[in-house]
C-alpha cells in the first residue's frame, strides 16, 4: 500500500513536470506571436533555437490555442513557394499572454531568490 502511494506520488511529480514543460512551450508560442504573425514552421524554428522540442507537438498545441480562441489563422502566399498558414493572436490571446508572462517573471524571481539561499530576512 505504502509502495503504491509512493509510486503514485512519483508519477504525479512526473506529470507536473510535463505539464510545466507544456505550459512553457505554450507561453513561448504566445510570446513569439505577440511580436508578429507567424506560421507553424517559423514558430518551431524560433523555439528550436533555444529549446529542443518534438516538432509534431506544435500542431496539436496550435489547434488547442485556436479552439480556446487565443489565436486565429489566415493563409498567405509566399515568394519562396507554398502558401503559409499564419497564426495571429486574438484580443483574449493577447490578454492571457500578458498575464502568463507576468506570472512567469514573478515565479522566476521567487525561485531565483530561493536558490540564492535563504529568505529575504537573512
Amino acid at each position: 500500500m505504502c509502495y503504491y502511494s509512493l509510486a503514485l506520488i512519483k508519477r504525479k511529480a512526473k506529470y507536473m513536470n510535463i505539464q510545466f514543460k507544456k505550459g512553457v512551450l505554450e507561453l513561448c508560442v504566445l510570446a513569439l506571436l505577440t511580436e508578429k504573425n507567424r506560421y507553424g514552421y517559423d514558430l518551431v524554428n524560433e523555439i528550436s533555437k533555444n529549446i529542443q522540442i518534438s516538432e509534431g507537438t506544435i500542431y496539436p498545441l496550435l489547434r488547442r490555442l485556436k479552439n480556446v480562441g487565443y489565436v486565429t489563422t489566415y493563409l498567405q502566399e509566399s515568394q519562396e513557394g507554398a502558401p503559409r498558414k499564419y497564426y495571429r493572436l486574438t484580443e483574449s490571446g493577447r490578454k492571457i499572454t500578458g498575464e502568463l508572462k507576468s506570472d512567469w517573471f514573478d515565479f522566476v524571481k521567487k525561485v531565483s531568490s530561493l536558490l540564492k539561499g535563504g529568505g529575504k530576512d537573512e
Binding site: 506560421y39 500542431y59 507554398a82 503559409r84 498558414k85
Partner: peptide
C-alpha cells in the same frame, strides 16, 4: 491537419 503537415514538409524542403 494533413494540410498543416504538408505545409511543414514543403517549407522544410524549400
Amino acid at each position: 491537419i494533413l494540410e498543416d503537415f504538408r505545409e511543414y514538409f514543403d517549407i522544410g524542403a524549400e
